[in-house]
Deep mutational scan, measured.
Amino acid sequence: GTVHVGDKTYHFPTPDAAKKFAQEIAKKLNLQVTVKNGTWQVH
Results as ranks from 00 to 15, higher is better:
G1N: 14
T2Y: 09
T2I: 13
T2V: 12
T2G: 04
V3G: 01
V3F: 01
V3P: 01
V3M: 01
V3R: 01
H4G: 04
H4I: 15
H4E: 10
H4N: 09
H4F: 10
H4C: 15
V5Q: 02
V5A: 04
V5R: 01
V5G: 01
V5H: 05
V5L: 11
V5Y: 09
V5F: 14
G6A: 06
G6F: 15
G6Q: 06
D7T: 14
D7Q: 12
D7F: 11
D7P: 11
D7A: 12
D7N: 14
K8M: 10
K8H: 11
K8Q: 10
K8Y: 10
K8I: 09
T9K: 09
T9C: 10
T9A: 08
T9Y: 13
T9R: 08
T9S: 08
T9D: 06
Y10C: 10
Y10A: 01
Y10G: 00
Y10E: 01
Y10H: 04
Y10I: 05
Y10K: 01
Y10L: 05
Y10M: 04
Y10S: 01
H11F: 13
H11E: 06
H11V: 09
H11K: 09
H11I: 09
F12G: 00
F12D: 00
P13Y: 07
T14W: 04
T14V: 03
T14S: 10
T14F: 05
T14H: 07
P15V: 11
P15A: 14
P15F: 13
D16W: 06
D16K: 10
D16A: 12
D16T: 10
D16E: 14
D16Y: 07
D16M: 10
A17C: 07
A17W: 05
A17I: 07
A17L: 13
A17Y: 04
A18Y: 01
A18H: 00
A18P: 00
K19W: 09
K19G: 08
K19E: 14
K19A: 14
K19M: 13
K20H: 10
K20D: 09
K20Q: 12
K20P: 00
K20V: 09
F21K: 02
F21Q: 01
F21A: 04
F21N: 00
A22Y: 01
A22L: 03
A22C: 02
A22Q: 00
Q23N: 11
Q23C: 14
Q23L: 15
Q23P: 00
E24H: 13
E24I: 12
E24V: 10
E24L: 12
E24M: 14
E24D: 11
I25M: 09
I25V: 10
I25N: 01
I25D: 00
I25K: 02
A26Q: 03
A26H: 02
A26R: 02
K27Y: 07
K27H: 09
K27L: 11
K28C: 11
K28W: 07
L29Y: 15
L29A: 06
L29G: 05
L29F: 15
L29T: 05
L29I: 03
L29C: 10
L29H: 14
N30I: 03
L31P: 00
L31T: 07
L31N: 03
L31D: 02
L31R: 06
Q32A: 11
Q32K: 12
Q32E: 11
Q32D: 08
V33G: 01
V33S: 03
V33Y: 06
T34I: 09
V35G: 15
V35H: 14
V35E: 15
K36T: 12
K36H: 14
K36C: 14
K36V: 15
N37H: 04
N37E: 10
N37M: 04
N37Q: 05
N37C: 07
N37R: 03
G38S: 06
G38H: 09
G38E: 06
G38W: 04
G38Q: 06
G38T: 06
G38L: 04
T39L: 08
T39V: 15
T39D: 15
T39E: 15
T39S: 15
T39A: 15
W40V: 08
W40R: 03
W40C: 06
W40Y: 14
W40E: 03
W40H: 05
W40M: 07
Q41Y: 15
Q41T: 15
Q41E: 15
Q41D: 10
Q41M: 13
Q41G: 05
Q41S: 09
V42C: 02
V42L: 06
V42Q: 02
V42W: 03
H43V: 14
H43P: 04
H43Q: 12
H43S: 13
H43D: 10
H43C: 11
H43K: 08
